[in-house]
Amino acid sequence: MTEDALAARVMDLNQRAWRLIQADRTGSRPHADLRREAAELQDELNAVDLSELSEDARRRLQKLLGEAKTECRYILSDGKGPTSLRAAN
């Protein structure tokens, strides 16, 4: 996968996590659905491999991956753990 394609993929996953955390915050969707989707998204996020990227690109995408992973964990912990900076601020 090219760097651009990988960046687009990470951006898409990040956007999905953001939607989940927004839905969790507003209570607009059943929590059970959000938990299931968060678990699926978590698997997809964990499958992303950034090791082939340049240091700059890896650092930039790792930030987006980290945000998304933290948001999935937050939903899976039923809101008991930490969340991302963007979700809180």
């Binding site: 930030k63 980290g66 933290t70 964990r73 753990g81 930490p82 969340t83 991302s84 900076l85």
Partner: peptide, 23 residues
């Protein structure tokens, strides 16, 4: 918060927020 090994899977993180504190 999330159990041993969580950070190794999710990190390195630039930061997170818990109970109003930015780490």
């Amino acid at each position: 918060f999330y159990g041993a090994g969580s950070y190794a899977t999710d990190g390195p993180l630039e930061g997170f927020n818990k109970d109003g504190v930015n780490y």
